[in-house]
């Protein structure tokens, strides 16, 4: 069984936020409004967070794309009373099944990465914007939790295609929307257990680290540090 994971190269990333927008377009994430944004109710499965360091003229700003880490030991799954969120054995994706969600928001509290979002409002797409919604993904109703799914609808499509061509799924068949759009090619995605995959090689780079490693959640999203490195196996 594959175990999908992601590696984000922070040295390549330029903080452009194409991933953030691609994610919204792909997953029918509603845009917010000035009022909702002030209340912190903007939904962003993928967002680029800035970190400021130092003072003028030696200041640094770092940009970090943040999304669901798809933990191997996910606190949100343990706490969910209705199994609306679960760890998929087939893919390693932490998935969210909206009709099962009762909107208790325990998972949003349990998540150490704060990447679970509650639908405080009914999504509003004025005509004719509805025509542009992605029909591969549902529009979530009010009062359910949603989050990054590693574009799980795309794994279904990729499998359908591979099966149709009577072959096994290969590295690169299944791409997430954020990976596909990234102009800097900073995002690599694939099966961490496949020794041939690029994502597996990169995740073992000496540049690699994970968010909140000490929490014991075993995230499947790896980051590569910025700076002058020359790692042979990344070539």
């Amino acid at each position: 069984m594959p175990r999908y994971g992601m590696v984000i190269d922070l040295d390549r990333c330029t903080g452009c936020q194409a991933c953030a927008v691609a994610c919204k377009v792909e997953n029918n994430v509603p845009f917010s409004s000035p009022e909702l944004a002030l209340e912190g109710r903007t939904i962003a499965w993928m967002q680029v967070l800035p970190f400021y360091e130092g003072e003028f003229p030696e200041a640094r700003t770092r940009f970090m794309p943040a999304l669901c880490n798809h933990c191997e030991i996910p606190p949100c799954v343990t706490i969910c009373p209705t199994s609306a969120t679960y760890l998929s054995e087939e893919t390693g994706i932490v998935a969210q099944i909206y009709p099962r969600c009762i909107g208790c928001r325990y998972c949003a509290v349990a998540c150490p990465y704060t990447v679970k979002f509650f639908n405080w409002f009914k999504p509003k797409w004025p005509e004719p914007m509805v025509a542009g919604l992605n029909p591969d993904v549902s529009v979530r109703p009010k009062s359910v939790i949603e989050k990054c799914t590693f574009c799980s609808h795309r794994v279904v499509k990729a499998r359908e295609r591979a099966d149709g061509e009577k072959r096994k799924l290969k590295d690169g068949d299944y791409q997430t929307a954020c990976q596909e759009v990234c102009p800097a090619k900073a995002i690599t995605f694939g099966d961490l257990d496949d020794p041939e995959s690029r994502v597996a090689a990169l995740s073992k780079s000496p540049r690699a680290f994970r968010f909140g490693e000490d929490l014991g959640t075993e995230p499947k999203v790896y980051y590569l540090r910025e700076g002058e490195w020359d790692v042979e196996r990344e070539r």
């Binding site: 087939e90 893919t91 998935a95 993904v137 279904v156």
Partner: peptide, 10 residues
């Protein structure tokens, strides 16, 4: 065939 929830529900 797959019985994973996300195979049919998204």
């Amino acid at each position: 065939a797959s019985t994973d929830c996300v195979a049919c529900h998204r």
